[in-house]
Write a protein that binds this DNA or RNA. Sequence first.
RNA 1: GCCCAGGUGGUGAAAUUGGUAUACACGCCUGCCUUAGGAGCAGGUCCCUUCGGGGGUGGAGGUUCAAGUCCUCUCCUGGGCACCA
Length: 955
Amino acid sequence: MAKETFDHSDIEKKTQEKWEALSLYTTDLTDTEKEKYYLLFEFPYPSGDLHIGHWYAFALTDIFARKKRMEGKNVLFPIGFDAFGLPAENAAIKNGVNPKDWTEQNMETMRAQIRTMGTSVDWSKEVVSCDPEYYKWTQWLFTKLYEHKLAERKTAPVKWCPKDQTVLANEQVIDGRCERCGSEVEEKNLTQWFLKITAYAERLLADLEPLPWREEIKEAQRAWIGESEGAHLTFTAHTGEADVLHPIEVFTTRPDTVFGATYLVLAPEHPSIDVLIQDALNADLVRAYQKETGKKTERERSENKAKTGVVLEGITATNPATKEEVPVYIADYVLNSYGTGAVMAVPAHDERDFEFAQRYALPVVQVIEPSFVDGKNPHVEGKEVTDRNGVIGIVRNKKNNTYLCLAWKHADWTTFVTGGIEEGEDALEAAKREILEETGYGGLEFVATLGNTRSEFFASHKEVNRIGHTTSFLFDLVSDTQSETTSEEKAKHDVLWLTEQEMHARGMRHAEFDYLWKRVTEGLQAYTGDGYLLNSEQFSGRDNREVLEEMVTYAGGEFVKNYRLRDWLVSRQRYWGCPIPVVYDPDGEPHLVPADHLPWLLPEDVDLTPGARGEGTSPLATSKELKERVTRIFGEGWTPEYDTLDTFVDSSWYFLRYLTPRDDHTFSDQGLMKSWLPVDRYSGGSEHTTMHLLYARFFQKALYDLALVPTSEPFNERFNRGIILGPDGQKMSKSKGNVVNPDAVVKEQGADAVRMFLAFVGPYNEPGSYPWNLDGVHSMRRFLDRVYLLRERRTEREATPDELKALHRAIDKIGNDIERFKFNTAISTLMIFVRELESNPTVAQEVFRSLLILLAPLAPHLAEHMWEQAEYKESVHTQVWPSVDVSLLEEETMTITVQVNGKKKGLITVSKKLTQETVEQEALGDPAVIAALKGASPSRVIYVPGRTLNIVIPG
RNA sequence: GCCCAGGUGGUGAAAUUGGUAUACACGCCUGCCUUAGGAGCAGGUCCCUUCGGGGGUGGAGGUUCAAGUCCUCUCCUGGGCACCA
C-alpha cells in the first residue's frame, strides 16, 4: 500500500507563485516601523550550473531569513551576481562565444534554478557586477581612491600566471601556484595599479578585536596582516678610500641583540647597492649575484636551502651600538619587500643569520645569556644574592661514546667537570685545569665553545643565593693517560665515563643540561629565546626584555611596526573585468576618466585569442574602438589604460549597492546606508577569510575616511559555512564525476526535503565538510510525509497541558537553534515534537497551527500548503514567530541522578517541591543505592538542585 | 618549524557549558505487510557480562564530590602562516 504523500512539484509551483504575487520578499528599505535586519550571503559567480553547494549557501541562510522576518524584523536578503571573471573569457576563447552573452545566459539559467529552491531572496535588489550601471560605480569609487592617494601606479615585482596571462595579487598565489589554474607562478617587473591597503594595516588589525567573529577567522586575518613590533636602527656604511658615509636602515624585532650584530645583509634588490657598489672591490661578483638571484622567484630562493650571498669588499658599516666596523653582504635570504630590505645579522641569536655566518665564517658573538633555574634548589627569599663565574668542561670519548662525569660524594649529584675561574686565567684555561685537577685527564682536544649560560640556585653550604655565569666547552679525549689526582679531590667525587642513557638515568644536576646537551649532540646553534645581556657594555647583566627602550635610544633608532601585508595589486591583463578608468596623456602620465564619462565602457571589438597581443598586455589593447574613443575625447596622442580591475574590487562593495541597485546618481544612498549598515550577518565560505573579507573591510574603511559610508566596518557577524562533499566523501569535482545535480533530486524528493537534508548534516555556524547522502534526503521526505499526515488529526479542541509543554519546548529550542545557525538540532527538535504529537489520536487546532509556523522556515513550501489547506489566513510566512511561555516549560517533577562517589547508581523522579533532605531520604531508599552503600554511612552529600545527588562515602 | 581549530558508535552528529554520554538521523539486524520496491510499518543496535553489574568520549597523567567538557604532557586530523629579520 502506497503511503499517502503530497505532490511536491505542484505545491512548490503554487506556493512560489503565491509568494511572488504577494511580493512577500520585496523589502521596503524605507520602512522604519520595523527593526532592520541585513542578512547577506556571498553573491555567486554565474558559472552556469547551480550545484548543491549553491543550495547549501542560499537555501540555508533562507531558513534564518524567514525566521527573522516572522520575528517582525524588516529583513533585507538580497542576491546578485559576481559576474566578471576569467571563466567567461576562457569559455569565449574555447567556444568562440561572447563573454557577455555567455555570462548572461548563465545568469538566466541560475536565476531559474535558484527560484526552485524557494528561497525568500529579494530579486528586486539584484546587482550584476558586469553591468555598466554597476561598474560605473566601481570605477567611480576607484577614482575616489585615486584622488585620495589610495590608488597608485608603481613598478614592482609582481606574480605572473603564464597560463591565465595575467598578474595575480599575493593572496591569489597559493604555494607558488596560481590559485585559479594551478600553474607555477612567475615573477615579472611591471608597472601596475595598487590599492594602498597597507595604509590600513593597523586599523584592519585593531578593529578586528571587537568584531563578534570566531577567533579562527580573526586569527587568520591577523596572520595575514602579520604585524611585528621592532625598531629601525641605522648602520652607517663607509665606502672605500673616499670614506663617504651612507646610512643603511635595518628593521629588527630584536634591538636588544644589537651588540651581537656582526655583519649587515642587504637584499639583492636593495637600492643602496647601486651606491655602495661604486666603491666595492668586487663589483662584478656583486652584479653577477644580483643577476642570478633576479632570475629566481621568491619561492625558488627559499626552496634552495643553503643560504648564499656575496660580501661587498672594501665596504664596512658601523654598528651603532659597538661602533665597530662590520662587513656588508648581499644575500637573497633577505627580502627586499619586507621591512627595509636590510637586516643586522646577529648569528648568535637568529637561526638564519647563524646558518649564513657558519657558511661564510663570520664571527658569532653571544649577547644573550639563557637563564635556567635549578628547580631543586631555587633561590631562597631574603638571602643574599651573589654572582659567580665558572666553567663546565665536557669531555667526550669518541671511542665508546661516553662522557667524563663526576659522581659527588657529599650529595647524590652527577655533573660534568665544573669549577671556578682563577685570577688571571681565561675560561678555556680554567676548564682544562679543572679537568686535569679533578680527573687527571690532560690529553684533550678543544672542539667548541658551547657558550655562556646563567643559572640560579641556592648554595646551601654557603647559605647564599647564587647566580652562576658559566662558560661551557666541549673537548675530545685524545689520550687515555690519566695522572694521579689529589686525595682531596678523590674524597670529593668519583670519576666516571657515562653514556647518554646513563647520564639520563642518573639525572645530571646542571640546570642547563638540556641546553648544553642539544649543542653537544647537534652542534652549535643560535639561541633565539630571552635571557640576560652579555658582551653589551653597560647593558650586560640585565634582562633583555627590560632594556629594549634604552637600547633603541642608545643605538639611535626608533620603534616601528612592520606588516607582512603588501599593497593590493588590482591590475589584470584580462578582458572580462571592470575597465580601469584611466587614460594617459602624450607624456605617459595617468589621468582619471572624468566622472561624466563613466561608465567607461568595456570595448567589444577585442581579439581574445592569446596570440593576438604582446605578453603582459591586456586584450583591450586589440580594441580599435577604445583607442578611437580616447583620441576623440582626450585628443591626439592620448592612450587608454588596457588593464581591467581584479574582480575582488567588484565584490568589495556590492553589499552597499544592494540598497540602491538602479540609482544612476550615486553608488549607494546615504540615508539608506545610515539605516541599514553594517550588514548584520554575513554568511560565506572560509576561502574568503583573507581575501574578500579583508578587501571589503579595507574598502569600507577607505570609504569611511572619505565620508562616503557611515560605518568603518562593513559586517557585524560573520559565519563561515562548511562544504558539501560528493557521495564518496571526496570534494566534488567534474573530473571525479561525483558532482551532485540538485535539479534531479529536487524533482524527485522536493525542494523542502533537499534543503532540510542540507540543514540536518551538521552545524551551519562552523566550517565542516559533510558528504551528500541520498538516503538522508529520503529520510527528510519521510519525515515531511508524516507531518503531512498530521493534518488529519487536527481537531477543534483546547490544547492539553502535555501538548502545550511539548509545543513550547519546541518553540524554545528551535528558535534558539535557528538563531545560532544550528539548523541540525532545530530539525531534530522538530522531529521529537512531531513524534510527541503522533502519539495522540488528535492534535489541538492551536498546536497544529503553531507547528506549521515552526515548520515554515525549514520547509517553506509544505508549511504554506498545509496552511492553506487548513484554511488559515494569508501566508504562514507572514505569521508571528511564537514566543515561549516559560511557565509552560516547568515540570512538576524532576529526575535526579543519584550517584555514590560520583558513579551513577540510579535515577529517581520526585516532586519539584522537595527539599534536599527529602530528596536525600528518597535516594537512600533506592535499592541500587542501598546496595552500593554496603551499609556505610555518607560522609558528605552534594546536591545539585534538579540534577544530581552525589552521596560520598569514605573509602 | 610556528599559530589556530578539532578528535565522541559502522556513518553524519547531540550533550542547556563541570552534573543521566551517544539525542536526532543514516546504515545494519530481526520481524510484519506486500501489487516484490531504491516502498511502508514495528522492534533492536557503544563494548564486556556469570544478568548482580562492570567499562567507555584518540592516549597518559592531574584537579574535583563529580570531567566529553577544566589543567599538563603526548599522538593523530583539518586549516592558516612560513627565509617576514
